[in-house]
Structures are given as C-alpha cells and as structure tokens.
Design a protein around this nucleic acid. Structure first.
Length: 355
DNA sequence: TGTGGTGCACCCGCTGCAAC
DNA sequence: GTTGCAGCGGGTGCACCACA
C-alpha cells in the first residue's frame, strides 16, 4: 500500500468518490460527526456526499431534527445524529470543558457565573421557541451577566458542551438555540466502554485508513484511550504500515473506483482534510489548505490530493468561483473542474461561473 | 444594487511544563 | 521517556451597516 492508496480509500469511505446515501442523516450517521463551523459551506460538506442533494435538503434535515448541530467533538461545532449527541457530549466533552478553563479565566468567567448563565438559558428557553444569540445575550444581560469580550459566546458553548442546549434552525440569517432535551427525543445512553468502542469502529470504517493518532486527535480522546478502544475493535479491520505509520481500514469489496481523473471541490473544514492528525497524506503543501492556526480553506482535490484552493463570491443570482491551483490545470482538466462546479451549482441552485 | 469597512465568531497548532 | 495539560497567538468568512 502507498500513500495514494490511502487517499483513494479515504475518498471512497468518506463518500466523496462514490455516494452510497441519499439522505443527509445517513451521511452524518456514517461519518459520526461532520464539522460545521462555517454554516453555509458546511451544508456542502454533507451535500457533496449525497446523490443529487440541494442545500435546502440539508437545512430541512435540521428542521426535521434528523440531524443536529452542536459541539460534540473537540469543542468544535459539528452536525451529528440525534441518537449520538448525548453520549458524545457525556464522554467526550469533559476534556474540552477542562481545556476551556484557561479561556474562561482569561475572560473572567468563574464556575458560579457559568452555572448562573446556564440557569438563565434554561429559564429563557423552557417551553419557548428557539431563541437567537442576541435574544439569549439579552437574557444574560437582564440577569446582570456581562456578555462582552465573547463571554456570552463562552457561556453558550459551555451550555452546549454540558448538554443543556443545541443549535436549532436559523431564523433569517441568525442561528437559534433550543434546550437539547426539548428539541430532541430521549435516547438510550450506552455505557462508556460500549460507546467509545463503537466510536472507534465507526471512525475507522468511515475515515480509514487512519492511525491511532488520527483517531485520538479527531475524537479528542487521550492517546491511551484511543489505543484502548482501537484495540477493542481492531480485529474487524485490516492493518497496513506505510512510511513507518500503521493504518487501520476496512477493505473495499470489489474493484475500488479510480478517482485519479476526478476533481472535487471541498468546503473549508471538510472531514477529508481536517479529520486526521497527520494531513500529509492529502496535503502535499499544508499551507495551501491551512493557515496553520486552525483555519482551513476550501480546497480542490485532484488525483486524490489537494492541488489548490477555491473561493466563491456571490452576486445576486450568480456564484463566481476563483481558484488557485498550482500548477494550473491543462485544458482537458479544466473541463473536469467545470463539471465539479456544475455539481456545486446544482446544489446551491444558483449559476456558478469560473472567474 | 453593489461596494467597502468593521466587528464578530470560529478553534487549531505550537510550546513548555508537570505527572507518571 | 511518554503522556497530558495549560497557555497563547492568530487568519478567514460572514453579517451588518453606511454610502454611492
């Protein structure tokens, strides 16, 4: 096995070079969590993995509560499945909350204020329609809690990590928030061992080939726990050592579709680029896709690897897409790029042109 | 209707230190 | 020596607003 084989298998398992699903909830359940910090682009992260989806299909899934947006992994906002959200928060969020302790101290948020903030949110949202961020900040203000210097945001995220609230569909362009237990029906809570072994199984199935370090990074588990839960399920996977790293993966039944000639436009923070500790498998030049401080740009994939970035600019009825590909595509490849743009245009239901 | 400026929200990677 | 934790710095996209 070579690095290109790893990338090709990841494109397959991540539902990019082939799509097995027709519903947003099936994609999200398969990947366990899909990073969703940039809302409009995150719709495409789900949509590109579906057959013939449009952006309103993903938004409708949020309205229908078949997927939910909250902070289940690494303190990062993701889409996840209603049946997964509570156990992920229970078993994965405590480490994130510990890590946020430093930031809370910096902005002057102590445990008493955070608890009071949660009570304010609970009272404001109980039996109410979802509220926007400004509305929740007003509630904090009325309770004499200062929301400046991002304190309001930190109370909001803390409340989500504690499982009190989750993100509900947008009102206009504003995201709204609801009480998790009012928004989603009660679900079975697996015990820790069962839940985290299942997490390992699902990560290596949907994201493999991946290393135990990748799993630890993605899940936020400690290295010790990541090894423990991989050990619990690794007999279900194949193992390959490439350039000194051990990768675990599900083999593909039948012939693996070649993605060498295909071009894919991935959104910023896509699982294909973000969900691994070691991104060198797909990022020849890491700077092309990442600024190095947590910001991931939208990328162009060709021959399984990141070959450049793309950027969209919206005017009234048109998206103009600008690409930065090195070296520039030859004419034939430009046509493949235009095909990828057409796919994206269908998804957003707006004409897309290459600048 | 388009353009430009401003502020907000986002969270990752790196380094150093402590604990085991 | 390995692992985990704490602290810190910072680039990008979006919403919003003012103005042409």
């Amino acid at each position: 096995m070579k690095l290109t084989d790893i990338a090709r298998l990841r494109l397959h398992h991540q539902q990019i070079s082939q799509q097995s699903f027709t519903k947003p909830q099936d994609v999200v359940r398969w990947l366990v969590a899909v990073q969703a910090q940039d809302y409009l682009n995150s719709l495409w992260a789900v949509g590109l993995r579906l057959k013939n989806a449009r952006d309103q299909d993903i938004e409708q899934a949020l309205v229908d509560k078949t997927i939910v947006r909250t902070w289940p992994l690494r303190g990062t906002i993701h889409y996840t499945s209603p049946e997964d959200v509570r156990w992920m928060l229970k078993y994965l969020a405590p480490r994130v909350i510990t890590r946020y302790g430093t930031v809370h101290r910096q902005v002057g948020l102590d445990a008493k204020t955070l608890t009071k903030g949660m009570k304010v949110f609970a009272k404001a949202l109980e039996g109410s329609a979802p509220l926007t961020r400004p509305e929740l900040y007003d509630a904090l203000g009325r309770a004499k809690i200062n929301t400046g210097e991002q304190r309001g945001l930190h109370i909001l995220v803390y409340s989500a990590l504690k499982g009190l609230i989750c993100v509900a569909p947008r009102r206009g362009k504003q995201p709204t928030f609801a009480l998790l237990d009012e928004w989603l029906p009660a679900t079975k809570m697996p015990d820790r061992e069962e839940a985290l072994a299942s997490l390992a199984r699902r990560y290596f199935s949907s994201h493999g080939p991946a290393t135990v370090q990748d799993f630890a990074w993605w899940s936020g588990l400690t290295g010790t726990d990541a090894r423990k839960y991989l050990d619990a399920v690794k007999k279900e996977f194949e193992e390959a050592t490439v350039e000194g790293q051990t990768y675990w993966f599900k083999p593909v039944e039948g012939k693996l579709k070649s993605a060498t000639g295909a071009v894919f436009l991935l959104p910023p923070y896509d699982e294909y680029t973000v969900a691994y500790k070691d991104r060198s498998v797909v990022l020849e030049d890491a700077q092309a896709a990442s600024t190095g401080n947590g910001i991931f740009r939208p990328v162009v994939i060709s021959g399984q690897r990141v070959v450049g970035t793309w950027k969209r600019t919206r005017s009234k009825n048109l998206f103009t897409v600008e690409t930065d590909i090195t070296p520039p595509f030859p004419k034939a490849k430009q046509e493949t790029l235009k095909k990828a743009l057409k796919h994206y245009g269908r998804f957003v239901s707006i004409d897309v042109e290459l600048s």
